[in-house]
Design a binder for these strands. Structure first.
Lengths: 200, 200
DNA sequence: ACATTTGTTAACCATTTGGTTAAACCATTT
DNA sequence: AAATGGTTTAACCAAATGGTTAACAAATGT
């Protein structure tokens, strides 16, 4: 029984290609080239394109979810949690720029996979965060709005600047270097303004 | 010289298919079937897949940009403009649910098209909005932050719930009907909280 | 050392897919 | 009604693409 790093290097290559081109745009040969192995190996280890793709999509969740869930579960003040979440999420995505777009796009096109991951441990789970919003509302500390709306806002402010980067740069006429700087600024700015907008 | 509605029905079919499946996932035959015409007609009117695709992407901007630019250019109070923008954008996207995801995804994968549309009249242009933010800052009415960050926030809050719908429903465990209700709520909620977060 | 399993390769295959062509169709002009 | 020119169709084509196979190499167990 060999652990064989071939399987891992296939997966790595597949991650690179799939995250950049998506399921429909990726080519098996391109993945094989990227991994510098024979195309037949892809099928030997992962049977077919769909299964290789699902392994990649699952690994994307595996990368993202623990990182988020740790922060969601921390026993700290809500505001501090918001600050930590935005800052560390932005840092993480700066290292994995294709991740959110890839996940979102493929989730939109693979309803079956959505069901598959629904009960899977790799799912990000912001329930603790939701409960903290509820508690603060109950304590009269923040506006009485749906906690889900709060989390929606927080996710939108944090994730969209990455997903919509090309569109935003185009529409707002922002050069690359400046955009990078804006993203850095957002590591503190989001939490600051978000907290400001909910405090009663 | 015939005006021939064939060309238009091809474009309509192409819009349907491309917006749902993207450039890489769409099939010429599928578009022909959708339009109920012979596949050769696609090439007769649009030469090849790339050109048909670009016509579709351009038409997507054509649908979106005027709708936004009218509001951006209105001579009204900043806060009122924000309220109008979020409300009417959400209404519009509810009618065209695939639009933002399609535009964002394809822009990310077609750097050449980005250049092409940069100087095109179909580009959404929030410059008037940016200037109003600047004016309010100068007047000491809102926090002294980069106006671009403000617009980034506004776009994120408005657009992301559509682009990331599947992911958000999955992660926050929200059923379809409830999510629709949340989106409706956001037509007023976004502006309310956004304004609350920037007023000095 | 030998046999058996596991890993790897090159060649091959069937289907899909974007694109072409030549003939037919149809409206308008002469 | 014959000619003209744009429009439409079915059949076809070459390349790309996902997937398979059979032979070969390298470990692994006996």
């Amino acid at each position: 029984m060999k652990d064989s790093n071939t399987e891992q290097s296939i997966l790595n290559a597949a991650i690179t290609i799939f995250e950049k081109k998506g399921m429909a745009g990726a080519r098996m040969q391109e993945i094989a080239d990227e991994a510098k192995i024979n195309k037949a190996m892809l099928h030997y280890y992962f049977r077919n394109k769909q299964q290789l793709f699902e392994a990649v999509l699952m690994s994307a969740f595996q990368k993202l979810a623990p990182q988020m869930n740790i922060i969601f579960a921390l026993e700290i003040d809500l505001y501090e949690k918001i600050r930590r979440f935005t800052s560390s999420y932005i840092d993480f995505i700066l290292e994995n720029p294709y991740l959110p777009s890839f996940i979102i796009h493929e989730l939109n096109h693979n309803p079956d996979f959505v069901k598959k991951i629904m009960s899977h441990p790799n799912k990000p789970d912001p329930k603790p965060l939701l409960r903290q919003f509820e508690a603060e509302i109950a304590a009269g500390k923040i506006e009485r709005k749906s906690p889900k709306q709060y989390v929606l806002n927080l996710f939108s402010l944090t994730i969209f600047p990455f997903v919509g980067e090309t569109l935003l740069k185009l529409v707002l006429d922002i050069p690359d270097a400046e955009y990078k700087k804006l993203l850095q600024e957002r590591k503190t700015l989001i939490a600051e303004q978000f907290i400001n907008s909910i405090s009663v």
